[in-house]
Amino acid sequence: MRAIVQEAYGSLDVLKLRDIDMPAVKDDEVLVRVRAASVHPDVWHVVTGRPYVLRVMGSGLRRPKVRVPGTDMAGVVEAVGAGVTRFRPGDEVFGETLHGMQWKNGGTFAEYVAVREDNLAPKPGDVSFEQAATVPTAGLITLMNFPPGPLGEVLVNGAAGGVGGLAVQIAKARGATVTGVEHTSKLDLATSLGADHVIDYTKEDFTRRGERYDLVFDIPGNHPFAECRRVLKPEGTYVLIGHDHYGAGGHQVLGSLPRMIKLMAQSMFHRQLPKPTGSPPPRKESMVVLTELLETGGLTPVVDRAFPLEEAPAALRYLTGGTARGRIVVVP
């Protein structure tokens, strides 16, 4: 099969289109013919091997353990393992291939990929493969980090990005009033995604406004918690996702981990910071939630551009350019 192969860490030029063996399918796995795979920042991090800590966290010390990049996709079931009961050949599915740590390759930049059954969900018929492929990784991050219960007044910093765009829509589906913070060029996109109010960060600092929010969902992390606290209600919650602008905003070795660890320590003394939890919600349950949102129109992914598989390096360059108005996918 054709696949994008990464033999080493480095620039995007390390990615090469090659013919490789089909993946072996375990008893609890499904072989999927990939119709579209999502391009997002975590893919870039593993290709470049930055921050360096990801290499010792499971990606591979000197080179990636899994040679084919990509983490989420949509496609058609080609074959199933002996223990699979929920899917059969011909079913249209979508999902994330990883389990556990996110900073590693998952094999989706290829014509076929083997995926655990519980990581997959049926793709709604009125959602395209390109749209469905963009949902799993960003959607699971959002669901894992949203607090339970009513959300109330929500501010999403980075409201038109991969995670931010889904966060706006999921918050709206849960009855929230959403304010989106974005660049001038993407304010209309944030509004179309459902934001009730928008703030142009090139003209106004959201941390110095008079409004107060029940939740500040901070994807870029371009303001310290001390500043974000100014716009939180006393019982409000601050959540940092911590996109580090492709290495420009985080530590070269540890990335955003020091900041995350500091916030975890501060959560013992600040009620506006979520306490560290144990395991994330079961993947199967979260995929059910995302599927229902797609089926009911609560989620409508916006795809900016689809690249052929062989142009995966160009797709990642387009992503890092920051001009995309919606999501990016590669199509085998």
Rank of each mutant, 00 (worst) to 15 (best):
L215Q: 11
I219D: 09
G83M: 02
S192R: 09
D200V: 15
V84C: 04
P122D: 10
V56T: 12
P23M: 15
K233A: 15
R35T: 13
A3G: 05
V231E: 10
L309R: 08
I4R: 06
V80M: 08
A171F: 00
G175Q: 04
V181A: 05
A138Y: 04
G297V: 09
A248H: 09
Y201G: 11
P276L: 11
I141Y: 09
V32K: 05
A3F: 05
L293C: 04
R18G: 08
P23Y: 14
E204K: 13
G165A: 01
P274S: 01
Q169C: 13
A265E: 00
A37T: 07
P258M: 00
P224L: 05
V163K: 00
L54Q: 07
A312P: 03
E292V: 13
L140T: 07
V239A: 00
R35F: 14
I20T: 07
R283W: 05
G139S: 02
T191G: 14
G152T: 08
G10S: 03
E292P: 11
M101T: 15
S185V: 14
A133S: 03
V113L: 04
R2E: 13
G161H: 00
K186G: 13
K16Y: 01
V93L: 10
D13C: 06
H243L: 15
R18L: 10
G175F: 10
L215E: 09
A8Y: 02
G81N: 06
G70A: 11
Q252M: 12
K186S: 14
L273F: 01
D196I: 02
L263H: 01
K123W: 08
H270P: 02
I141H: 08
W44R: 07
W44S: 09
G100C: 06
P122M: 11
P281K: 09
L193F: 01
E310C: 02
V76H: 08
A74N: 02
V5F: 15
L232T: 01
L12M: 03
V93S: 08
L120I: 08
T71V: 12
E211L: 03
P276V: 04
G236Y: 15
A312E: 08
F225R: 10
A171R: 01
T291P: 00
P89M: 06
Q252H: 13
M144Q: 15
G322Y: 07
A195W: 03
P23D: 15
N119F: 08
A3Q: 09
L240H: 04
L31T: 06
V34L: 11
L254I: 01
G236S: 11
I199W: 08
N157D: 12
A226F: 06
P220A: 11
I170Y: 03
L140Q: 09
N105V: 06
I170S: 03
A324S: 03
R174K: 11
T191K: 15
A324N: 00
P282C: 10
L166G: 04
T296K: 10
E227H: 11
P64E: 04
A265T: 05
L273K: 04
I199C: 04
